[in-house]
C-alpha cells in the first residue's frame, strides 16, 4: 500500500463517512453528462425508496429520453415504456397490483408532447401513482431539439434563431394544467441545481409515496432541470441560466397539496 492509498483508506473509514450512496443505486456509472440533473433525481428517488423500505413493493417505469436506461441504475423492478406511454403502463400495473408503489420517470418531450393524452388522463382518473417529470426545456436525448417546454426565444437545434411563439406555439405549463384536475392530490415544482433545492425535492418525493400509500390520487412532481449539452453551456452557466430564465417562467413551489387544494 503506497502512501496515497493509505491516506485514501483513512479518509473513507466508516467513522469519517458523511455521505453514503444508497444501496438501491447500482454501481454502474451514469451515462449522463457531467452537471445533468437526471443523476441527482435518480439518487433522491432511490434514497426515498430505501428509507421507506419499499424496494420489494415498487415498480418503476422508464421513459424514452435521456433517462431511457434508468433501469440500469435503479435496483428495483422496472419496465421500459414507449415514448410518452409511461402513465398508461403505470395505470395497467397499479390497477392490477394496487398494493404496489408505482412511479413513472419522464422528460418534458415524453410527458408533455407525445404523451400528453396519457399524462392528462392518468392525472384526471386520479391513478394512485407518482409521476416524476424532468423539465429541462429541451429534447436532450435526440440532440437538443425544441420541447413543449422550450422558453420563448430560447435556442434549440430546431429553433436555431430562438423559439418564435407565433410560429411554434407557446411553452406549455403542463404542471399548472394537471393541478386543475380533480384526480391529482399533490402537484409541485422543484429543482435540483442547488443543495437546498435538492433537499426540498427529496421531501416532495417522499410525500408523494406516502400519498400513494394513502390512495389519495396522483402525485405530480415537476423538477426544473438543466441540459448543459443541449443548451450548449458549461454546467455552471447552465445552472445560472436555469435560475435566471427557467425559474421566472416555471416558479418553484407547491401548486396543490392534499391540505390546500
Amino acid at each position: 500500500m503506497d502512501e496515497q492509498q493509505a491516506k485514501t483508506e483513512d479518509i473513507i473509514k466508516k467513522e469519517n463517512l458523511v455521505f453514503d450512496k444508497t444501496k438501491l443505486l447500482t454501481d454502474k456509472a451514469f451515462h449522463y453528462c457531467p452537471g445533468c440533473g437526471h443523476g441527482v433525481v435518480h439518487r433522491l428517488l432511490m434514497e426515498v425508496i430505501e428509507e421507506l423500505d419499499i424496494q420489494e413493493k415498487t415498480i418503476g417505469i422508464a421513459p424514452v429520453g435521456c433517462s431511457v436506461l434508468a433501469y440500469h441504475y435503479m435496483d428495483i423492478d422496472m419496465q421500459e415504456a414507449a415514448h410518452g406511454r409511461a402513465p398508461a403502463l403505470a395505470t395497467g400495473i397499479k390497477r392490477t397490483l394496487p398494493e404496489k408503489y408505482v412511479f413513472t420517470y419522464q422528460g418534458d418531450g415524453d410527458l408533455a408532447a407525445i404523451g400528453t393524452a396519457e399524462t392528462i388522463h392518468s392525472c384526471n382518473r386520479g391513478e394512485n401513482i407518482t409521476i416524476i417529470f424532468i423539465n429541462n426545456g429541451i429534447y436532450g436525448m435526440t440532440g437538443g431539439q425544441m420541447a413543449p417546454t422550450t422558453l420563448e426565444n430560447m435556442k434549440s437545434s430546431t429553433t436555431p434563431y430562438g423559439r418564435n411563439v407565433k410560429q411554434m406555439g407557446n411553452p406549455l405549463k403542463i404542471t399548472e394544467l394537471v393541478a386543475q384536475l380533480p384526480g391529482t392530490c399533490f402537484v409541485t415544482r422543484q429543482a435540483v441545481h442547488k443543495p437546498a433545492y435538492v433537499r426540498k425535492t427529496k421531501k416532495a418525493i417522499k410525500k408523494a409515496f406516502k400519498y400513494q400509500k394513502q390512495e389519495m390520487g396522483l402525485s405530480f412532481i415537476e423538477i426544473v432541470s438543466n441540459c448543459n449539452s443541449g443548451w450548449k453551456m458549461t454546467p455552471n452557466d447552465a445552472n445560472k441560466w436555469l435560475e435566471n430564465n427557467m425559474l421566472p417562467f416555471y416558479p418553484l413551489g407547491d401548486l396543490k397539496t392534499p391540505e390546500k387544494k
Binding site: I61, Q79, A81, R85, A88, L89, G92, I93, R95
Partner: peptide, 8 residues
C-alpha cells in the same frame, strides 16, 4: 400500453 404494463 395498459396491457403492456399489466402483462409485464
Amino acid at each position: 400500453n395498459m396491457v403492456y404494463g399489466a402483462a409485464g
